[in-house]
Design a protein around this nucleic acid. Structure first.
Lengths: 189, 189
DNA sequence: GTTTTTTGCCTAGTAGGACTAGGCTGGCAC
DNA sequence: GTGCCAGCCTAGTCCTACTAGGCAAAAAAC
């Protein structure tokens, strides 16, 4: 019997693509095995369990997004950097909804610490250098930024904005303007 | 054989409680049947399918949250109202993580239109009356508000803020200050 | 280049969830 | 009382996750 050539990397990539097509919750070991023309039991040589599959998608996504953000940020500062970061984030989420959703599962501490999530944190703080904030203001500002990005993207995806005709792109750039304004005058009020 | 007295309402409530305990993704028809001391097949007399169960949890949660927000908002205006709304929202999400997660599934348009989601929208706009915004600024502001609330709560829940020791309560009130500031000077910059 | 070991895949199984078809029955309408 | 039907049942199908143990292809040892 010929070998199918399944590796952890090919598996993770296929899983990520499947997630984008059918949603993370429908990424199943069985479906993946079918794609590789292999029985599902065989995948457990490359995989501890189904949960690990999602974790791997999450780690892949975190790394991909960190790369994109790093590119977007190159040579920019201040509001320019803020907008570039934000758009890279939102674009990634829209292009890869399944991967983005996978990113939201909570990793156990050591996995998280070894993930590209730390690069995200570093880059976010790098942006804030343009706004000259010190602790604990910086942390508060980072959290506000992240909340706005994630909240907007997440609501946009699940249809939370659908009931109003206003184009979401317009609301998005206003939100970024607002974020810039508030960061410029941090701490607020 | 004695009848178990299963009704759609009791089922929904039990499902919601189960969701808060074990997460929406683990709310299963079989588990619910066990709680009622009934075979799983029997529940399909009260339920079209498993998805409907989650939709019902979502509708229940939307209604409960709308009630809470309405109470919190009574007699308040301006920043006072904003903070009351925000805290009601966050408190609900923390007390009822499963219900909150269920709220995020996207309902089909007619279900959404008949849900308590419309009350949320009305109340959000009511808050903005204190900031005297007209369209389309109002819509942008509503979206920003909602994004911040949802994003913060969601990240807090999934552990997105864990790597920094700063208490999330402090960051939260700063975020509300920021939101108030930006709404006061809308449109930004 | 043959032997040994490892590894990648297999079959065969268990267990549990979603869901359907069709049967029995307790309690209501009349 | 007779009939009806809602509310529960059994029994079955199909799917997924996951385990144990077998076999053969490829890689390593010699």
């Amino acid at each position: 019997m010929a070998r199918a050539g399944v590796t952890a990397e090919r598996l993770t990539l296929a899983a990520a693509e499947l997630a984008d097509e059918v949603g993370v919750e429908n990424v199943t070991v069985a479906a993946l095995a079918r794609q590789f023309g292999v029985k599902d039991a065989s995948l457990y040589f490359h995989l501890r369990n189904a949960h690990e599959l999602r974790v791997r998608i999450a780690l892949l996504a975190l790394a991909e997004l960190a790369d994109r953000v790093a590119d977007a940020l190159a040579g920019r500062a201040g509001k320019d950097a803020l907008v570039a970061f934000a758009n890279a984030y939102r674009d990634y989420a829209r292009e890869h909804p399944g991967r983005y959703a996978a990113m939201q599962i909570d990793l156990d501490p050591e996995t998280a610490a070894a993930s590209a999530g730390v690069r995200h944190a570093e880059m976010t703080r790098a942006i804030l250098r343009g706004y000259r904030l010190s602790e604990p203001d910086q942390t508060d500002a980072v959290r506000m930024m992240h909340s706005t990005f994630h909240g907007f993207v997440s609501l946009e995806r699940t249809g939370g904005f659908r009931h109003t005709p206003r184009p979401t792109d317009d609301s998005w750039s206003r939100a970024l303007d607002a974020l810039d304004a508030v960061l410029t005058n941090w701490p607020p009020r």
